[in-house]
């Protein structure tokens, strides 16, 4: 009987939360993860400390992984994708790339996002200069415990973080705000300063969107306690000067003058793209994509966890840029909603 089973696609924070909630209701969860490890972006990309808890990603997400893996009602397929989905709500059959077949009454797509690839913004120097990094790479550097220029290992006097890389940019077809980068960058600035007190950190911004409770905890704190300098300029180009330092070119829109400022490391606060697999996901599961390429929500107010297909739910960054904590909340909600709908089906049939 498949009406006691929910297929969860994606083993990141949202998917793990969904599976856990399905389990806690006494239902079975089958998690299909295309990578060989569970944990999603925080684990795969080696994030350092998470916003807002400050816990290391490995510990925090690790607990979520353990909770699902230890649950007898959970089955996990790693290194596998759903190849085909047949049936309808209450009675789906999914064929996996590992040859297995899964029967489930509902599907939760927790398929997440893809980090923006800075190579698409070539004038900002990523791919040209070794000392131009992404926030993800900088997180890894923080996790390694040492802040240094990749080119020659020197301790940077100055690091700058450029916001809105791959977000809010019509030139490259990314009109959305990626929601998390302001906070992540403020957090990163503090982490850098903590490890390397002699390094000055600058954040170049158009506006700062550390929404909700992230305001004082990240924005204010990085500025007031860690002396991060916020400069109102969206950077236009990054090049290097003869002495090997990077030159950041912008207009300080408050001073109303062009600036060309030397830095040792430039960090791109990369945004969140729709999962690169979304066209495939849309086809396999028969769900619609909204205009930016993320999964389309069924209905904003009464069916927030739904997709355009009945019996298929979604959550987290699959819907659009999302924080980890909200992804988890949405995952839990989607798991709960899937179980509730299945319960109703059984009642009705019963």
């Amino acid at each position: 009987m498949q009406q006691d089973t929910v297929l969860v696609v994606g083993g990141g924070p949202a998917g793990l939360a969904a599976a856990a909630n399905v389990n806690s209701a006494g239902y079975k969860a089958v998690v299909v993860e295309k990578e060989d490890v569970l944990g999603g972006a925080p684990i795969l990309s080696g994030y350092a400390k998470l916003v807002p808890s400050g816990e290391w990603a490995k510990d925090a997400i690790g607990r979520m992984v353990k909770r699902v893996e230890d649950d007898a009602n959970s089955t996990v397929h790693k290194g596998a994708k759903v190849e085909k989905l047949e049936g309808e709500a209450g009675n789906f059959t999914a064929t996996l790339t590992n040859g297995e077949s899964v029967q489930a009454g509902a599907v939760v797509l927790a398929t997440g996002f893809t980090h923006f690839d800075s190579i698409n913004k070539p004038e900002w120097g990523f791919g040209t200069y070794e000392d131009v990094l992404t926030t993800t790479q900088m997180e890894q550097m923080v996790a390694s415990g040492k802040i240094a220029c990749p080119s020659d290992g020197r301790v940077p006097e100055r690091v700058c973080i450029l916001l809105c890389v791959g977000s809010r940019d019509r030139q490259i077809g990314r009109e959305w705000c990626s929601k998390i980068c302001c906070t992540v960058s403020a957090n990163l600035a503090m982490e850098i300063k903590e490890i390397s007190p002699e390094t000055d950190v600058f954040i170049y911004y158009m506006d700062i969107r550390t929404f909700g409770l992230y305001e004082d905890k990240f924005y204010w704190k990085s500025q007031e306690e860690f002396k991060t300098k916020f400069v109102k300029a969206r950077i236009a180009e990054v090049t290097a000067s003869g002495d090997g330092r990077l030159l950041v070119k912008g207009e300080d829109t408050l001073v109303k003058r062009p600036i060309v400022i030397p830095f040792d490391i430039v960090v791109h606060a990369i945004g969140m793209d729709p999962n690169a697999d979304n066209p495939e996901i849309s086809q396999v599961f028969g769900v619609g994509l909204e205009k930016h390429g993320f999964l389309e929500r069924a209905e904003q107010y009464t069916n927030t966890c739904g997709t355009t297909r009945k019996g298929i739910y979604s959550c987290g960054a699959a819907y659009g840029p999302e924080t980890i904590d909200d992804s988890i909340a949405q995952g839990a909600a989607a798991g709960g909603r899937a179980v509730a709908d299945l319960h109703a089906l059984v009642q009705k049939a019963g």
């Binding site: 060989d36 684990i43 990094l133 220029c149 990749p150 290992g153």
Partner: peptide, 20 residues
Amino acid sequence: AGHGSFFQSTDLSKEDAVKA
């Protein structure tokens, strides 16, 4: 985007790290 030799591994396995 290759880091210098100082660059220490996180606790990820090599494969995971490449995937990262």
